[in-house]
């Protein structure tokens, strides 16, 4: 069995039953059968992990099941590194790989680190959810040639900005990666990164072609650099997050606004994410970021989470509470217009 698709299916079966040893065996057998380790990492492990994410979004898996799957995949990545060790680095160039602060999905970055190691780089893997200050300390101490930051959540973009600034103060180029930066990487420009790669293979190819960057060739067309007004409104949203979540929850589920903290965790999580994405959209001044999230949150089937028919009233409630922030209010009104009609 060497076809990536068949391997992925077999792998996912093992992961679904929390069979760590079985999952490692699928990967090890593939390597023994001559499958390229990069294919095992990206087309089996990473591809299966994407399906795990889809199952969670579809409400088939709980968040803990997803964590268990991710844990198994981490172990498999380590096992692949042991089973088919990467050749020693070919040069002296070093790349530091880090997840954005607040980004707990460390696996894509871990996979990137493995892939870059196999492409001859010296790799320093800083892990999931790296605070900007920790990254700055690392860059000053270790002096990597390139910093690669990874995130799947666009709501972490304000953190990305802080991390990029920490690196740029030292003249270290930053390559951004992952869906957090938009389908075409436009938000990578907005936060000041020097380039964007859609996935680990593309990142390896870009770094091989040009180890120094900047990889963005032309000046930003539609991704505007973050300005002061955007930062201020984003800061307001961040500071008022808890209050806004309660306010929005009360607007759609008046019954739960009794004494005590009666908001279901799932609803509070969804509303918290909604405020985070709103803040990120204000931050990069791009309504499509927020519209994308609003469409997505309506499509996710999480019991007691935010329902599609509640999204509109939530947007109205937030717009009323945020009348002092003109950009934010405009974004909320715009997103309201683009809402799909709830299915009766």
């Amino acid at each position: 069995m060497t076809s990536p698709d068949a391997l992925r299916v077999a792998y996912l079966e093992r992961v679904a039953v929390s069979d760590e040893a079985g999952a490692i065996a699928v990967a090890a057998d593939a390597l023994d059968a001559g499958v390229d380790p990069e294919v095992v990492l990206l087309d089996v492990v990473a591809a299966a992990q994407r399906e795990v994410g889809e199952r969670w979004a579809a409400g088939e898996w709980t968040v803990v099941q997803e964590h268990v799957a991710t844990h198994i995949s981490e172990r498999v990545v380590a096992a692949v590194a042991r089973h088919a060790p990467a050749p020693p680095p070919t040069g002296s160039d070093t790349v530091a790989v880090a997840c954005l602060d607040g980004e707990w999905h460390g696996l894509p970055a871990r996979l990137l680190a493995e892939v870059l190691t196999r492409h001859g780089w010296r790799v320093e893997f800083l892990g999931a959810s790296v605070p900007a200050a920790q990254l700055a300390t690392h860059v000053h101490r270790a002096g990597p040639d390139v910093v690669a930051i990874s995130s799947s959540l666009a709501s972490r973009l304000p953190a990305a900005r802080r991390m990029v600034e920490a690196c740029r103060a030292t003249g270290t180029p930053v390559l951004a990666g992952g869906p957090a930066f938009g389908e075409d990487g436009r938000w990578a420009r907005a936060v000041g990164a020097d380039g964007w790669a859609p996935d680990a293979r593309a990142a390896a190819a870009m770094l091989a072609a040009d180890p120094e960057g900047p990889w963005f060739t032309e000046e930003p067309a539609d991704g505007t650099p973050v300005d002061r007004a955007a930062r201020e409104e984003q800061a307001v949203l961040h500071a008022r997050r808890a209050e806004l979540v309660r306010h929005a929850a009360a607007a759609v589920r008046p019954a739960v606004d009794g004494p005590g903290d009666g908001v279901p965790d799932e609803l509070a999580d969804d509303l918290g994410h909604l405020v985070d994405f709103l803040a990120a959209a204000v931050f990069v001044d791009d309504p499509s970021l927020f519209d994308g999230f609003v469409r997505w949150v309506g499509s996710v089937a999480i019991p007691t989470g935010l329902r599609l028919d509640e999204v509109g009233p939530v947007l109205d409630a937030l717009a009323a509470a945020l009348a002092d922030s003109p950009r934010t209010a405009a974004l909320l009104r715009g997103a309201h217009g683009g809402l799909p009609t709830p299915v009766a």
Binding site: S18, E20, T62, V63, V64, H67, V68, H71, W104
Partner: peptide, 17 residues
């Protein structure tokens, strides 16, 4: 309770998160 049966590393990671 949501972590019941999960490997201990996942329990700790989930709680930390």
């Amino acid at each position: 309770p949501a972590c019941a049966g999960a490997p201990p590393a996942v329990v700790c990671e989930h709680l930390e998160q």
